[in-house]
Nucleic acid binder design. Structure first.
Lengths: 141, 141
DNA sequence: CTTGACCCCGTACTTCACTACAGGGTTTAT
DNA sequence: ATAAACCCTGTAGTGAAGTACGGGGTCAAG
């Protein structure tokens, strides 16, 4: 009784069966044994594994990061490796925040500039986009 | 002499010809007249138009946002519409920053937790991902 | 014994913004 | 005259993370 069909596993983890199959194809969830007729029969821990995946995803780890994280969880690696992966991701997130803040700053400036209703012929936002070359710098967006 | 072939336009705008053709297909750059033999002959303003696109892109506007912005620039709309588009984008950016900061906070916590080298059997990061349900909340990442 | 709920498979489509061909024609420079 | 450098077209592939679909097999209840 302690094996679950794909539908049960998916329901308990809060995903759909297609996604479950997708994670199997991607090597995130190991392929379970099958019945004679080909039905997958999962051990209940599978649900926890999926929850792990979802939690890591909510922290913005990519599926390939997660694949690594999982293989480390499976005992294949050191804590240092996990730490390193987290660190790298943290750095990426931090950088992304900085980029977005720069963008935010420009947009705020443009917006307030536009609110101060001057009698300009052209909208100041359009004008800035037409002229302000410094807007062109950086940002891997 | 004041018409430019696609290669010239692309070079002056700092993009490749494939990208230029792509922008034409996407309706961001108007289809220019052609020579007998089918070569595109662009008016020089096209270069400015592409620069406009690149600047807007560097602020994180999507191509479809930019299509709108351009049609407003082309005189089709009011300043209010530009303002509204900018405002919406600013809100989206701000929200994205908040999400990333939440993620950043959790990652920092996990990281420092891992640095404080305790004698845990499992890495605290892996443990958190295995257990901490609150990590599952929100974030459209 | 049949209906309905469940499961299987593989393939293809989605979004976004390109990028890369393949297979030609044209123009320019030597 | 010929080769290099340029231009044209259309289609297909990239990556990320799925979603959708078509067509079929299976299992439990009534």
């Amino acid at each position: 009784m302690h094996v679950l069909t794909s539908g049960k596993v998916a329901a308990r983890a809060g995903i759909g069966t297609e996604k479950l199959r997708f994670y199997e194809r991607e090597g995130l969830v190991p392929a379970p044994p099958r019945t004679e007729s080909g039905y997958r029969l999962y051990p209940p821990e599978t649900v926890d594994r999926i929850r792990f995946i979802l939690r890591a995803k909510s922290l913005g780890f990519s599926l390939s990061d997660i694949r690594e994280l999982l293989s480390l969880q499976d005992g294949a690696g050191s804590k240092a490796e996990v730490h390193q992966l987290t660190r790298a991701h943290l750095d990426a997130v931090t950088e992304r925040i900085r980029d977005l803040q720069r963008i935010q700053g420009v947009l705020q400036e443009l917006e307030s500039c536009c609110s101060r209703r001057g009698s300009a012929k052209t909208c100041p936002i359009i004008r800035a986009l037409s002229e302000r070359d410094e807007l062109l710098e950086g940002v891997s967006a």
